[in-house]
Design a protein around this nucleic acid. Structure first.
Length: 263
DNA sequence: TGTGATGTTGAATG
DNA sequence: GCATTCAACATCAC
């Protein structure tokens, strides 16, 4: 589920569910996804703390605490949040839950355990050290073009590289390539300047559209734009090009040829 | 029943 | 040293 727009949705959900809430305890069922301490220490650190704010950068969601520290929530492939009261509603793959003093519980559900949760004493230092790039919704055109530079990687590989820009994942990367009519395997260095600006414009368009729609994401995932074309054999708008797929930059990638030109 | 999955990391390679 | 690629991670759903 989670690329930038989905994490944006998680942030809104988290804010409504957890801000100004005091943590009575943290119930840890499986601390595999807590990456920098064991479950007991994690719970110990969080007890009696209150969530005061949140910050999203790319797919990373930082939950700030009243002691100046933060909790990093990264949702991996299958992470999700669920607020509930009745323990019977506990999500099937809940790994831990914040139990608030008002009786609500915020569960972190994650079937595949690819999520990463860290307790951070200094969120900004962590962002600096981790090399996480600027958020894809915030990056300026000039910075985007500079990040492209003369890279020899594919456009797809560039868009997925979280240290170049943070937030684009496999599906949105394909969508951006489709809309700009660039083959995802095109070498970044050989893209003409005009095309680079177009990629930036479509990146903004796609992400802004998705963020606007994100409140409905859970209800209407099947209506997401790529669902219409991201199937092998689908006809592109030219009525001739058919969708093909292959592994590019390590991920399954769909594009329409020759609708999307290779540079 | 085998295959692939909306992500990241760290090792290996160029 | 830097850029890039790729296997590994763990488990579910089709």
């Amino acid at each position: 589920m989670p690329e930038l727009p989905e994490v944006h949705t998680f942030q809104q959900y988290f804010d409504a569910a957890a801000l100004q809430q005091r943590i009575m305890q943290v119930e840890v069922h499986d601390d595999k996804i807590i990456r920098n301490m064991d479950g007991f220490s994690f719970a110990e650190r969080l007890r009696e703390r209150t969530f005061t704010g949140s910050l999203r950068q790319g797919k990373y969601l930082f939950a700030d605490l009243d002691n100046g520290h933060s909790v990093l929530l990264h949702f991996g492939m299958t992470g999700d949040l669920k607020l509930y009261q009745d323990p019977g509603e506990r999500p099937r793959f809940e790994r831990f839950a914040f139990v608030f003093t008002d009786g609500n519980r915020l569960g972190f559900d994650d079937a595949r355990k690819f999520a990463r949760v860290l307790y951070l004493e200094d969120r900004d230092a962590y962002i600096a050290e981790s090399g996480l790039g600027p958020d894809a919704l915030v990056i300026s055109e000039a910075d985007f073009l500079a990040a492209m530079g003369q890279r020899k990687t594919s456009l797809k590989g560039f868009l997925l590289n979280q240290s170049c820009l943070a937030g684009v994942g496999n599906l949105y990367a394909d969508e951006i390539c489709y809309r700009t009519r660039v083959h995802p395997g095109s070498t970044v260095a050989s893209l003409p300047d005009k095309k680079r600006r177009e990629v930036y414009a479509k990146l903004q368009e796609v992400l802004h559209t998705a963020v606007e729609q994100s409140p409905h994401y859970r209800d209407y995932p099947e209506q997401w734009f790529w669902n219409e074309w991201r199937h092998e054999g689908h006809l592109a708008p030219d009525g001739k090009s058919k969708v093909e797929s292959a592994k590019i930059a390590g991920r399954t990638t769909y594009w329409a040829a020759p609708w999307q030109r290779k540079y």
